[in-house]
Amino acid sequence: MADEPDLAKSIEETLRAVIETLIDCEEGFRLIGQDLKDESLKTSFLAEAQTRAAFRRTLEETLHQIGVADATETGTVVGAIHRSWGDIKAKLGSTDRDLLETACQGEESALQIYKLALDKKLLLPIRQVLVNQQAHVQETLEYLQVAAEGLV
């Protein structure tokens, strides 16, 4: 990869964008999970927050492997706004269904970031990690949609 500094830079930028999104997702699942009334959903959300943290650590390790010394990110401004909106809704007495719909919106945004990342030129092992993570996000979105429909 040393022969391709542009590819390395592109991969770094791509992974940083996904990492920022994973931070947003982790925080979103944690915060919404704390406000859910259904204990099963609450447990699922808190577990999903841990899964997103694990996804983030994997990508941070990948950055280290390609020579990036500082792989620390903080999340996105859009994610912070989305989390704040979810928190406001919870404090105003939103239902579990409302909170699930907020989570669905977050997952749809995350899927867009994965799509953009996978449209870039990536090394095969990195692409495979992102494809696997994207599949999990898609499954989670589908689970949330079904759960929200069940709370009508």
Rank of each mutant, 00 (worst) to 15 (best):
S84E: 12
C104L: 14
L122I: 09
T95V: 04
I81G: 01
C104S: 13
I88D: 06
L92T: 06
H82M: 05
E108W: 14
T72H: 11
T95I: 04
L118D: 02
S94T: 04
E107P: 10
I88T: 12
D96S: 05
G79L: 04
T72W: 07
Q105M: 13
E107A: 07
L124D: 15
E108N: 15
K121A: 08
G106I: 06
L122S: 03
E107N: 14
C104T: 13
A117R: 00
K121I: 07
L124M: 13
H82T: 05
L116K: 14
A90S: 11
L122Y: 03
E107K: 03
I113T: 11
G93P: 03
D98S: 10
D119Q: 12
Q112A: 14
A110F: 08
S94H: 05
V78E: 13
I126R: 00
D87W: 05
A103L: 08
G93N: 04
E107Q: 15
I126Y: 01
E107V: 06
I113A: 02
T72C: 05
R97M: 07
C104M: 15
R127D: 06
R127A: 08
L122D: 02
V77D: 12
G106D: 09
A80W: 08
K89T: 07
L118V: 07
K89Q: 09
T76V: 10
I113N: 00
S109F: 08
T95P: 01
I113R: 01
L99M: 09
T72E: 15
G79Y: 01
L124W: 10
K89M: 12
C104N: 05
T102H: 03
G79F: 01
A117H: 00
Y114L: 11
K89N: 03
C104H: 04
I88Q: 08
A80Q: 12
P125L: 12
L116Q: 15
L99P: 00
G93W: 06
E73K: 11
A80D: 08
W85Y: 11
V77E: 14
R83D: 03
I113V: 15
S109P: 02
H82W: 06
A117N: 02
T72G: 09
T74I: 15
K91D: 11
L99S: 02
P125I: 10
D98I: 04
R97Y: 03
R127M: 08
W85P: 00
V78R: 12
H82P: 00
L124H: 09
Q112P: 02
T74Q: 15
T74G: 14
A103P: 01
L123N: 03
W85E: 10
